[in-house]
Amino acid sequence: MFDIAWLWGLLGGLLIGSAAALYLLVNGRIMGASGIVGGLVDGSGRDNWMEALSFLGGLILVPALIAWVFGGAETHLTGNWAVIIISGLLVGLGTRLANGCTSGHGVCGISRLSLRSIVATVFYILAGGLVMVMARHVLGWV
């Protein structure tokens, strides 16, 4: 039945969308996490590195502060190092090849009905579902 987590999800989602709207209408930029980090890492975002770093500062420090004050935040990340490393490599490589992740394609792209973003989102959710079911129910990795 109704789960309070859904309401928190909706509220959090509204905040995520508001942040993306602010970034678009004030800064004139697309709020894609992989694009902002990736641009710093491979040098393609060199022109706006201070802006990107400021974004990352807010993104890392403010939730950390809130989690520290209120407590109880948990990632429940697997303790399997091989899985963590392979997962990180795939996420980094994949999001940069596709030019976007859940925030860039999922939130900013779908909301302007971009065909590329819809295709990307369908593929990462399908691949994610398939790998999840395989890894958990067939192979028993995660």
Binding site: I86, L90, G94, L97, A120, G128
Partner: peptide, 21 residues
Amino acid sequence: PLVIGSTLFGAGWALSGLCPG
């Protein structure tokens, strides 16, 4: 690259449950 990248990203996303944000 869009399709291959998204597929790789989805696979990695499932393994840990983490995406970049």
